[in-house]
């Protein structure tokens, strides 16, 4: 496995305001053009809030624009993800064959590396990260999604090890010039965006997906909690999943504000 080249990657050396368009027009507008390139962003939310869909759109948009994109799937088999991507009108099968879009089943990687302990030991974490580093070198990916960080963190368990893992992961991704979405599964209660709470302190940004109630109806909502390197709105937006991608509208507050 070849180590990453020393020094900042060209993609990150172009300045902090260079943007990585998510492909979701309204989100790009909120972020004044997109995610600052080279950032590592947590996409947090409870089940069914659209985390994977948003992440897939981000990758497909990148691949369409000629940026190599890598999906590291811990929870769902790659074949199922491909099926999900077909629901997007802009999905093209050839993106998979040409290496512009690569899907990796992480459980298969665990198996090949012999990482079969329920809790990963420090040496196993190092092996896993080195393998990830090699994937990035080989794939020359500029966009990465890890779905989900939570499932991975369950195998690390100890808070200090998660912190070390996150720091090293962040270093590797930055060295490769990747703009990365780390999917984080959280409960519906507010106030925390990851399994241990240390993850959100290390990442550059947090996108929160959730549900808002209005008189018994449930609206999918998105909020940018933090994004280093760009001013942004912290307002909630209602999300609609459509075959042309995610669409966002302001969340109307009415007289008393939304029920949460």
């Amino acid at each position: 496995m070849a180590p990453p080249e020393p020094g900042p990657h060209p993609a990150t050396a172009r300045g902090p305001r260079d943007r990585c368009s998510t492909g979701i027009e309204a989100l790009d507008n909120i972020l004044e053009g997109g995610i600052p390139r080279g950032s590592t962003v947590l996409v947090a939310g409870s089940v069914g809030t659209g985390k994977t869909t948003l992440s897939l759109e981000f990758l497909l948009h990148g691949a369409e624009r000629g940026e190599r994109s890598l999906f590291l799937s811990v929870t769902e088999p790659a074949a199922k993800l491909v099926e999900n991507m077909r629901s997007f009108e802009f999905f093209r099968e050839e993106l998979l064959g040409t290496g512009m879009l690569t899907l990796v089943d992480i459980p298969v990687v665990y198996e090949r590396l012999g990482l079969d302990h329920e809790e990963m030991r420090p040496d196993e974490i190092r092996i896993f990260l080195a393998t990830l580093d090699a994937f990035l070198t080989e794939s020359r990916a500029r966009r990465v999604v890890l779905d989900s960080l939570t499932s991975l963190a369950y195998r690390i368990q100890r808070e200090e090890r998660i912190r070390d893992f996150m720091l090293r992961l962040s270093e590797i991704l930055t060295a490769h010039g990747c703009t990365t979405l780390l999917v984080s599964e959280i409960g519906p209660q507010p106030g925390r965006y990851s399994l241990r709470g240390v993850e959100e302190a290390i990442v550059d940004g947090v996108l929160l997906l959730g549900n808002a109630r209005r008189h018994g109806d449930i609206l999918r909502v998105l909020q940018v909690i933090k994004m280093r390197g760009t001013p942004h709105s912290r307002a909630q937006y209602v999300v609609e999943m459509t075959p042309i991608g995610l669409l966002l509208a302001p969340h109307f507050q009415g007289e008393s504000g939304p029920e949460e």
Partner: peptide, 9 residues
């Protein structure tokens, strides 16, 4: 009551 979704459709 899903006014935002009407707008988005």
């Amino acid at each position: 009551r899903m006014l935002e979704n009407i707008m988005l459709r």
